[in-house]
């Protein structure tokens, strides 16, 4: 048997063995991996409305239970109209409602913006007045550890609580990351729309500010409804079945 022939046969057998092994592993473990991702996403959603504490220890069962009991998922279209489940209108924006009983406590918007190095994904929860931020979490980013990566720290996220996305006259201004400490860097009447920046991470702050503005603007129609007190109850027809 010639050398080339031997090499070819050897490679073919090796490839076959490796592919079988890896495909078996990948397909077998896929279920676990997807469940992990979904659980992580839900945990972060719950964290944004303080249903789970940061750093707390929760089992998969706990997360599932808390989520099913408190969160309802609906979709709205660009004009803020709630899209009933099953209707296909093309562009639909997901909104998560945190409700106790029949009253809506807060609505949660998924954040997916461009950061300095990659996507920043998280959730922003707004109170039912449509103007005050109830919570903000970041669960995925590729920012520089120690600099832009600080956006995943509790201190940064907690600074958002209580800030407003509307200005003094009720106009939409979104929430921005200041350069430095908000108390000193920003005039007093605007401080409610700014959070402290991260030293050494100006660019990350800028990207986050721009991204949040974009997303909150897209969701303005529904925020306006909350401000006008028109969305205090869970819309019956719109409830989407949450995926297991």
């Amino acid at each position: 048997m010639s050398d080339t022939m031997r090499s070819l046969i050897f490679s073919a057998v090796l490839c076959l063995v490796c592919s079988l092994l890896l495909t078996a592993a990948a397909t077998g473990l896929k279920g676990y991996q997807q469940e992990n991702v979904e659980l992580d996403r839900r945990r972060n959603l719950l964290k944004s409305v303080n249903l789970v504490a940061a750093g707390g220890d929760y089992s998969a069962e706990d997360i599932r239970r808390l989520y099913d009991a408190n969160i309802a998922e609906i979709a709205v279209d660009r004009s803020g109209r709630v899209v009933p489940a099953g209707e296909d209108t093309g562009v639909s924006l997901p909104v998560y409602l945190y409700q106790t009983g029949d009253a809506i406590q807060a609505y949660i918007i998924p954040i997916n913006t461009r950061g300095l190095w990659g996507k920043i994904k998280g959730y922003m929860a707004l109170e039912s007045d449509g103007a005050t931020i109830a919570g903000f979490t970041v669960y995925q980013h590729s920012e520089t550890p120690g600099l832009g990566g600080e956006i995943e720290q509790r201190w940064f996220q907690e600074n958002f609580v209580g800030k407003k996305i509307v200005g003094r006259y009720g106009d939409f201004v979104s929430v921005s990351v200041a350069k430095g400490v908000a108390d000193t860097a920003v005039p007093e009447e605007k401080q409610m729309n700014y959070v402290d920046g991260i030293s050494g991470a100006t660019l990350t702050g800028r990207f986050l500010t721009a991204g949040l503005k974009d997303i909150l603007e897209t969701y303005e129609p529904i925020s306006v409804q909350f401000r006008g007190q028109r969305m205090l109850r869970m819309p019956q027809a719109a409830e989407k079945k949450t995926q297991p």
Partner: peptide, 9 residues
């Protein structure tokens, strides 16, 4: 090189 992070473009 870390000092470059302060540059505003």
């Amino acid at each position: 090189f870390m000092m470059f992070s302060g540059i505003i473009l």
